[in-house]
Amino acid sequence: MRKPNFFIAGAPKCATTALYAYLSTHPNVFMPDVKEPHYFAEDLFDFRKIKTLNQYLELFQEATEEHKAIGEASVFYLYSADAIRNVYNFNENAKIILMLRNPVDLAYSLHAEHLYCFYEDERDFECAWNLQNSRKNGLHLPKLCRVPGFLQYASVCKLGNQVEKLLTIFPSSQVKIILYDDFTASTKAVYKDVLHFLEVPLDGRLNFPRINENKSHQFSLIGKFTERPPLPLVKIALQFKETLGLERLGVIDKIRQSNTRVRPRKMLNVDFKAELINEFREDIEKLSRLVDKDLSHWMIG
């Protein structure tokens, strides 16, 4: 059985879904239908979709000799305390792709994503930011948040610390770092560079649609049903799919799509943005050194 030789390891809300989608159609790249299995993030137990090695390897059982690059995308591997070391122990020759962005923008975007998934119940980002200390002590936690640590926006988004740790495990020659700004500005060029890193030929892709834009639920109750369907209903659906021999039913997906609205986020308050920049300043400077690129523009209010 073949196993993955590259990993899109993070970070969340940095266009990893787009890169995953683009690579999935390449004839020499295999990526499983299950995005974000998070198998190696053992410290994020309740968040992992796949919890056994056999289940994990089954994700790649359809890979063939034509697939020179076999990979998966789990965006919290970089944040996880265990995942990167576990990935190295699994395949020390694996290639790692990291997609990173301005932590101020990342934190704000992550808050919106948590709201959409019902991990977060405080709709105002500044209020959610100010709840971090009390939530660290187990207070004011949303009922549906399976990993309270995800609500620690400062630590999740300090990417310099996380990249520094990764580079003590994997050699830099096996790590490809992509900045969100570069990916959005020159998607085609970055995509070609990724293919070169993975050692697969160009596939002639010309279309790079935007994927996973900022979104919200039109009706919260419907959103909660689609994101966290009742367990008895899930069991019935699984039995129904097995009886019919279907890969997926897609009913909840269709309901989710019809209830989803793409909306731009409002501008952050100037004083609050300055507070965020100050919080992330040291980490941005560290990341600048690690990627050997001036990121001082990230610290402009």
Rank of each mutant, 00 (worst) to 15 (best):
D182Y: 00
K188Q: 14
D181S: 11
Q174A: 10
Q174I: 00
T187S: 10
T168P: 00
I177P: 00
A185R: 09
L167I: 05
S172Y: 05
Q162D: 07
Y180N: 12
Y180C: 09
I169N: 06
G160Q: 04
L179D: 01
I169C: 12
Y191V: 01
K176A: 03
S186N: 14
L166G: 02
F183E: 03
G160E: 08
K165C: 09
D182R: 04
Q174P: 11
T184V: 11
V175L: 08
T168Q: 15
I177Y: 01
S172D: 14
F183W: 08
T187L: 12
S186Q: 13
I177K: 00
K188R: 14
K165I: 12
V175P: 01
L179P: 00
A189R: 04
Q162P: 01
V190K: 06
I178P: 02
K176N: 13
V190I: 15
T187G: 09
I169D: 07
I169R: 08
V163M: 08
V163P: 05
S186I: 08
T184K: 15
S172P: 09
L167D: 06
S172M: 11
S172I: 13
S186D: 13
Q174L: 07
T168G: 05
P171E: 10
S186G: 08
Y191K: 03
D181Y: 02
I177D: 00
T187Q: 06
I169A: 13
Q162M: 10
F170P: 12
S186C: 12
D182G: 02
T168W: 05
S172N: 13
A185D: 10
V190P: 11
V190L: 12
E164S: 14
V190S: 09
Y191S: 03
D182K: 01
Y180I: 06
S173Y: 07
K188H: 14
T187E: 05
K165M: 13
A189D: 12
L167R: 04
D182L: 04
F183A: 09
K192E: 15
T187V: 12
T187R: 02
S172A: 14
F170S: 02
K188N: 12
V175H: 07
D181F: 03
K165S: 13
S173M: 08
S172V: 14
L179Q: 00
S173H: 13
V190D: 07
S173R: 14
A189I: 02
V190T: 11
Q162Y: 07
I177A: 04
Y180M: 10
V175D: 02
P171V: 06
T168A: 09
V163C: 04
K176W: 06
S173T: 05
E164Y: 11
L179S: 00
I178Y: 08
T168D: 11
F170I: 01
S173W: 03
D181K: 05
K165H: 09
E164P: 02
A185E: 09
G160Y: 05
D182E: 12
V163I: 14
Y180S: 06
P171N: 12
V163N: 00
L167H: 02
T168L: 07
Y191Q: 07
K176C: 10
S173L: 10
S186T: 12
D181R: 04
A189V: 07
K176M: 09
K188W: 08
K188D: 14
Q162W: 08
V163S: 03
L166T: 06
N161I: 11
K188Y: 07
A189L: 06
Q162G: 02
K176R: 11
T184D: 04
D181T: 10
